[in-house]
Amino acid sequence: MADDTHKLAIFRGYLKFKSNTQKIWGVLIFLSIVTTVEVILGIVKPQILMTPFIRIKLLNWIFIILTLVKAYYIAWDFMHIRDEKSGLKNAIVLPLIILIPYLIFIILLEGDYIFNVMQDGFVSWNF
């Protein structure tokens, strides 16, 4: 692959790079910023973000979303999914985005149910 086959724009075209090497450094800077934000939030733990939303704290939602953002840029730019044919792209991404949320949904629902059973059940778990 020569340079001209790389797609050099990220952020839906807002940011265009001149060469692939430049894009790599650009993505590194972006990933570093995101990680730094995560670490700062993890240390400061702002009180406003501690309110739960769908059983998970807002802060944790932010962490999860930022993680997905990072995962997107690692896969799209470092692993060059951006440059692949859409067939290959879908073959890789679709199984993951269908199966993983499904697994998360059923297993966490079950975990929450078992928590309630253990809390409200007649058996003491703390003796």
Partner: peptide
Amino acid sequence: WFFIVSDALTFSGFLVAYSFSRFKN
């Protein structure tokens, strides 16, 4: 790539199992 997809599913299995135990406790 297909190895990575299957490995990704393995890791998500582990992490979801972790989350299950965490939600349980």
